[in-house]
Every structure is written in structure tokens, then in C-alpha cells.
């Protein structure tokens, strides 16, 4: 099942307006994730307050959980050197192309 909602993937690359397309509080959620991952304390304080003001405490807590979880997942993937499971899926191919993911060093774990 899908939501059939139009979104703009460039939100993943930090485009704030794109992050808001089709996703409630998308801009604020994206900025919180960005602040957590960049470890910029002033950005984090600002992003936390913006999300709190826009969406409230429950959203902030759940968003913090997701960001924290994916700080972990990337480290599992890269530390163990795992390749992508299915390089042939059309969806995966289009996402990797649009976001230009092969520029990352860890692409070698799949492409070598």
C-alpha cells in the first residue's frame, strides 16, 4: 500500500522547500535530522525549537528517535561493509540516480 502522495526527493539533499512538498512539517523535520547528523549544536537548538513550535512535543520526541536510529543504521551498514540487497529494482535505481548516491565512498561496498 502506498499513499500516492507527490513528494520532492531533493528534500533528502537539504532543499528546504522540497522537503515540505507533500509532507506535513517536512521542512522542520528535515532540519532536525540535518542538525542531528551534522552535530552542529546551534543548528540543533534552533531546529529543535522550530519543530517544537510547529508540531509539539510528541512529534519532536518521535522525530528525535528516528534521527537517532539512523545515526546507528548507517554505522552498522558501513562498519560491516554490506552491499545493497537489490541493485536491480527500478525504484532503487531511480532514487540513486536522482540523489547521485554513487558519489559516496561507501558505494564501493556495493559496486566493487
Amino acid at each position: 500500500m502506498t499513499t500516492e502522495t507527490d513528494i520532492n526527493l531533493q528534500g533528502v539533499n537539504g532543499d528546504q522547500e522540497a522537503a515540505a512538498v507533500g509532507i506535513k512539517h517536512g521542512k522542520e523535520l528535515m532540519l532536525l535530522g540535518e542538525a542531528v547528523a551534522t552535530r552542529d549544536q546551534s543548528l540543533l537548538k534552533e531546529a529543535r525549537q522550530r519543530l517544537l513550535d510547529e508540531a509539539g512535543t510528541s512529534v519532536l520526541v518521535d522525530a528525535a528517535g528516528v534521527a537517532a536510529n539512523f545515526q546507528r543504521m548507517v554505522r552498522i551498514a558501513d562498519s560491516m561493509g554490506i552491499p545493497i540487497d537489490d541493485m536491480e529494482s527500478d525504484l532503487g535505481k531511480s532514487v540513486r540516480t536522482e540523489l547521485d548516491l554513487t558519489r559516496y565512498a561507501s558505494a564501493a561496498n556495493t559496486l566493487q
Binding site: G14, I23, K24, G33, E34, A37, S58, V59, A63, Y104
Partner: peptide, 24 residues
């Protein structure tokens, strides 16, 4: 039991992963 839906979760997840340069 979550206050954000799956699209909201995946946006955060993808942004965190992108900054970490995660290909997987």
C-alpha cells in the same frame, strides 16, 4: 502509536543518511 507518519519518518531517515554519505 507514533505521532509522525511513515513519510515523515523516511524524510528524517534519508536526510540523516545523506549527511552520513550512506549508500546503503
Amino acid at each position: 502509536d507514533r505521532s509522525i507518519n511513515r513519510m515523515q519518518m523516511e524524510l528524517i531517515a534519508a536526510r540523516v543518511s545523506a549527511i552520513n554519505e550512506c549508500f546503503y
